[in-house]
């Protein structure tokens, strides 16, 4: 058990180190001279030299990497070229909005997927089942930059129920959360259905039924508990996709989170900020994945009490 925990934490640390190096290299794949791209071709030579020096671009690559990584350890992500503010500060301002959006989308996904998936599994082959699977197929196929504008059109422009964009009031969260949560809901409902069907075919379910338990008790006490584990894993793994999708959703709804900051940084060629955004989202993704694995190990008695692996 301890062995499993340590090895999982170690590989998370390696992944984060790798991610940091890759993010560092990002600025070096800029075609041509990154300083020229960031400042524009007409910038005076003195300004260019100053920026080159302040970003350390005049030093050898391994020194730059060392400088970047030691900076990260001190939580120093550098400075924005555009606003001259520390990047950490910019990220701190934007993270709460993205977290709120992500959690709301997760809530939307779960509250659609669980009832739908359970219903589909219990009434396998029925109209409910077919409807749920059709929803799931449609949900994974509609990209959020299509769903978002359509939702805005119907619920904000025509019906006027929710604001078109921005963060004013709790109503403003509904459409972005629906947009971001639908794909996850689609994947999850499929997953809930198939795991529940698998579990319902197990011997212990037959035993539970044979000893005269009601259908509700069989499903709630015996089936759902065992179907929950794989579903939790999928939620964890899909959270990364959710974070990636948040970038586009935030643009659609002018939601002031990390995703919007990412795209702003690209448009302004503010590469240090872009690096910071990518780093934060990826590290969050790695941490969530690791936490999911560890939670799985804690919840699953076969891993918790077994011989470690």
């Amino acid at each position: 058990m301890i062995h499993f925990f340590l090895s999982r934490l170690l590989s998370a640390a390696i992944a984060i180190a790798g991610v940091s190096c890759l993010v560092f290299l990002l600025i070096h794949i800029v075609p041509g001279d990154p300083v020229e791209v960031m400042l524009g071709e007409s910038a005076p030579a003195a300004d260019r030299a100053a920026l080159r020096q302040s970003m350390g671009l005049d030093r050898p690559l391994q020194q730059q990497l060392g400088h970047y990584l030691t900076g990260l350890l001190r939580l120093d992500l550098g400075q924005s070229l555009h606003s001259r503010r520390p990047i950490l500060e910019l990220l701190r301002e934007r993270i709460p909005a993205t977290v709120v959006l992500g959690l709301a989308a997760l809530a939307v996904a779960l509250s659609i997927a669980l009832p739908l998936g359970i219903l589909a599994a219990l009434k396998q082959g029925s109209r409910w089942d077919m409807g749920a699977m059709a929803f799931s197929m449609l949900g994974v196929s509609v990209p959020n930059f299509v769903l978002g504008p359509v939702l805005i059109m119907v619920f904000a422009v025509w019906l006027g129920w929710f604001p078109v964009s921005g963060t004013g009031g709790s109503g403003a969260l509904v459409l972005p959360a629906l947009t971001l949560g639908t794909a996850l809901a689609a994947i999850l409902s499929r997953m809930v259905r198939s795991t529940l069907l698998e579990v319902l075919g197990e011997d212990y379910i037959r035993t539970a039924r044979a000893k005269g338990l009601g259908e509700a008790a069989v499903v709630l006490r015996h089936a759902l508990q065992n179907a929950a584990l794989p579903v939790v894993t999928i939620v964890g793994l899909q959270l990364g996709t959710l974070l990636g999708g948040a970038v586009i959703t935030e643009i659609v709804f002018a939601w002031p989170g990390i995703g919007q900051l990412t795209v702003e940084a690209i448009q302004r060629r503010d590469y240090p900020v872009l690096q910071g955004c990518i780093l934060v989202i990826s590290v969050a993704y790695v941490l969530v994945n690791t936490a999911t694995d560890l939670a799985y190990a804690l919840l699953d008695p076969r891993i918790r009490l077994g011989d470690g692996q």
Binding site: L26, T241, T262, Y285, V286
Partner: peptide, 24 residues
């Protein structure tokens, strides 16, 4: 395997956004 793990540590679309943002 290590390289694959590092690539998988990025949400896919995010890495694509960053790369095409930097490449132009």
């Amino acid at each position: 395997v290590r390289v694959i793990d590092i690539f998988l540590a990025f949400p896919g679309i995010l890495l694509a956004i960053a790369l095409s943002g930097v490449l132009g």
